[in-house]
Simulated scan of single mutants.
Amino acid sequence: MREITLPAGLARVAFVGPLFRFALHGDMPVGIQRALLNVLSRVQFMPEGSVVQHLQLGGRPAERIFAEAAIPTSRTNAVPPERAAGAVLYLHGGGYVVGSLATHRSLVARLARETSCAVYNLDYRLAPEHPFPAGLDDAEAAFLDLVNNVGYRPDQICIAGDSAGGGLALALAQRLRDNHQLTPCALGLIAPWGDPRQPPTADRDTILNRKWIARCAADYLGDADSSEPGYAPLATDLTGLPPTYVQADVDELLHEQCAQLVAGLREAGVHVRFTETRGLWHVAQLQAALVAEAALTLSGLADFLREAIQPVSIEDLR
């Protein structure tokens, strides 16, 4: 379907802000929120030529998405996805309580097209039905499945995610380091929610609000102890992590946490690329099919992951 380009300001004021202010109301039952977000996802179009394959990964439903005839071993030679140089494991956002394969399919498909890799979109378990560490356990099982059964090496797999999925990606990298001595190729984090224990400093932004964030944090924690490893990866050891991309808008509620994470990663000796936008919103990449600035921001993430998976060689430059 042909994409529609809207000015970022118009999209924020007339479409994105009002819809998400309603859909993520702090008092709305989570089941209704999930249904509304799935409906909203229908206007987030996938690029033409996207291929979606349904499968199980680590015992959970997942999708492998790639661009038809666009999975290269180098910049010029197309091969099937199972022979690609690498892959991306994507963990969707939604405060650990909402979000689905459907809500993030468009974003994942665009990422697949621009990285020229297969991207695995995981349907990990959500709170409050399945609180911490269920989602982290599912992400761990999916990564190990890609290594042990699909056949990728750990250093061929990038882990990416947005918001809560970004926090989950960070926690997964720490668990792989600590429990399995494995290091993924890179991390791609869109406005990661790295510490659910930290309350936001403002009441709301275009997408998120303080009340909804607090409810999500409590639902995700359940009966666990908030000091357990993996719940707040921002406050956990950041050494030994792979090259990391972090993106946030300067006016969103999670910007301060993102800045803290970048500072902590740099202090730990991790290579970091931090990009900030002004005038977009939390995970604007979800609207990349509608807003050119959001698409450009997603391209920055894709470039980082592609370079990590497929470093430029002499042959590519000839």
Rank of each mutant, 00 (worst) to 15 (best):
R2F: 00
R2H: 05
T5A: 13
A8I: 09
V13K: 15
A14S: 11
L19A: 13
L24F: 09
R34M: 07
R34Q: 12
N38D: 15
N38C: 06
V39R: 14
V39L: 14
V43S: 10
Q44E: 07
P47E: 07
E48P: 09
E48F: 08
G49T: 07
V51P: 02
H54N: 12
L55D: 05
G59Y: 09
T76N: 06
A78Q: 13
A78W: 10
P81M: 06
R83E: 14
R83C: 10
A84L: 07
A84H: 04
G86Y: 09
V88H: 12
V88L: 14
L89A: 11
V97W: 00
V97D: 01
V98D: 06
V98C: 05
V98N: 08
L101N: 09
T103C: 01
T103K: 01
L107C: 02
L107H: 02
V108A: 13
V108I: 08
L111S: 03
R113P: 01
R113Y: 08
S116T: 15
S116N: 15
V119P: 08
D123A: 15
A127E: 02
P128S: 07
P128F: 09
E129H: 05
P131H: 03
F132Q: 03
P133L: 00
P133M: 00
G135S: 15
D138W: 04
A139F: 01
E140A: 09
G151T: 04
Y152P: 08
P154I: 10
D155N: 14
A160Y: 07
D162E: 14
D162L: 09
S163Q: 02
S163A: 08
G165L: 10
G166P: 05
G166Y: 06
G167L: 04
A169T: 02
A173R: 09
Q174P: 02
D178W: 02
N179D: 15
N179H: 13
H180R: 14
H180E: 04
H180V: 01
T183E: 11
P184F: 08
P184L: 11
P192A: 06
P192W: 01
G194D: 01
G194I: 12
P199W: 05
T201Q: 14
A202L: 12
D205L: 06
L208V: 00
K211S: 10
I213L: 13
R215W: 04
R215S: 02
C216D: 06
G222A: 05
G222C: 05
S226L: 12
E228L: 13
A232V: 02
P233N: 03
L234T: 02
T236V: 00
L238N: 03
T239D: 03
G240A: 03
L241N: 04
P243D: 14
A248G: 09
D249I: 07
D251W: 00
E252D: 09
H255F: 15
Q257M: 07
L261Y: 00
L261W: 02
G264A: 05
G264E: 06
R266K: 13
A268P: 02
G269R: 03
V272H: 08
E276K: 12
R278P: 03
R278S: 15
L280C: 08
Q285N: 11
Q287Y: 13
A289T: 10
L290T: 11
E293P: 11
A295F: 00
L296V: 13
A302S: 14
D303H: 09
F304P: 04
L305M: 15
R306H: 10
E307M: 10
A308G: 15
A308N: 13
Q310F: 10
Q310Y: 10
V312I: 14
V312M: 14
I314D: 14
